[in-house]
């Protein structure tokens, strides 16, 4: 049913730490790998080795340059996947009931055998979290690795989304936002976790932790090492033949 549940028992989702992400794209690759080999239609690639390669991904990493009014520009890597919104506009627009939000854990899923591939849910999503598969012609989206997190055939340590499991920097965290004592709820509270495009009214479950303020160098605070003066360039002015050549060329 494409009407949204009034509330969900749990709110499973991700915390993504923009301060820690190094932009390695490992989450992109592990997501593609797991979701091609497991639940649902595989994520296709078209013209993969040709001149115009394109493919379906459920998770993509952008990079942004942010220029403050004063100081140096910052480079921020920005992973983006489905935010499993509480007020998911992609669900209500679906004409067939293929898109739904689960009451038990709040995961937004697509029943691929009901999807007619009209694409309206992708139009309704402001985050670009849904992609129509060019080969299967059905809508693909992040399942929060629903086939991992409850999978008792996997060792307990692996029962989290592939992107979280693989992140070498620890920039991704998985948990239940409905529980105020959960790891993700605490992280969000401590670090000021934020919503993307809050004005769209989607109430995303996934939270982004903003980059921490940059360190600033100040000489008065003694941040400059006492040995720094010895690192000054030794040769200040050219002497001898090179010095003469320099002066002569200057005069010309």
């Amino acid at each position: 049913m494409t009407t949204l549940p009034q509330s969900t028992n749990r709110k499973l989702g991700l915390v993504i730490d923009l301060d820690t992400c190094v932009g390695c794209h490992a989450c992109v690759i592990s997501c593609k790998g797991w979701n091609t080999e497991n639940y649902g239609a595989p994520l296709s690639d078209t013209d993969a080795y040709g001149s115009d390669p394109s493919g379906t991904f459920l998770n993509r990493v952008h990079s942004y340059e942010v220029q403050p009014t004063q100081g140096e520009a910052q480079l921020i890597h920005f992973p983006k996947s489905c935010l499993h919104c509480e007020d998911a506009p992609c669900v209500t627009v679906c004409p067939t009931g293929a898109s739904y939000k689960r009451v038990e854990d709040g995961i937004v899923l697509v029943n691929e055998s009901d999807c007619i591939g009209c694409g309206l849910c992708a139009w309704a999503c402001p985050y670009g979290a849904r992609e129509m598969d060019a080969v299967e012609k059905v809508m693909k989206k992040c399942t929060l690795c629903v086939d991992r997190i409850y999978n008792e055939n996997l060792p307990e340590v692996d029962r989290e989304p592939a992107c979280v499991r693989t992140c070498p920097a620890g920039a991704r965290h998985f948990g239940d936002f409905a529980d105020p004592d959960s790891h993700v709820s605490k992280l969000t509270a401590e670090r000021g976790g934020m919503d993307l495009m809050p004005e769209q009214g989607t109430k995303p479950v996934n939270k982004y932790l903003p980059p921490r303020p940059k360190d600033t160098l100040s000489e008065s605070a003694g941040d400059i090492d006492i040995l720094a003066p010895y690192l000054e360039p030794v040769a200040q002015e050219a002497k001898g033949f090179l010095g003469w050549l320099d002066k002569t060329l200057e005069k010309l």
Partner: peptide, 15 residues
Amino acid sequence: TATGLGNIGSVRAFE
């Protein structure tokens, strides 16, 4: 608002 980074400075798509 899309990136949530607007309060740091002006945002430009780098890559």
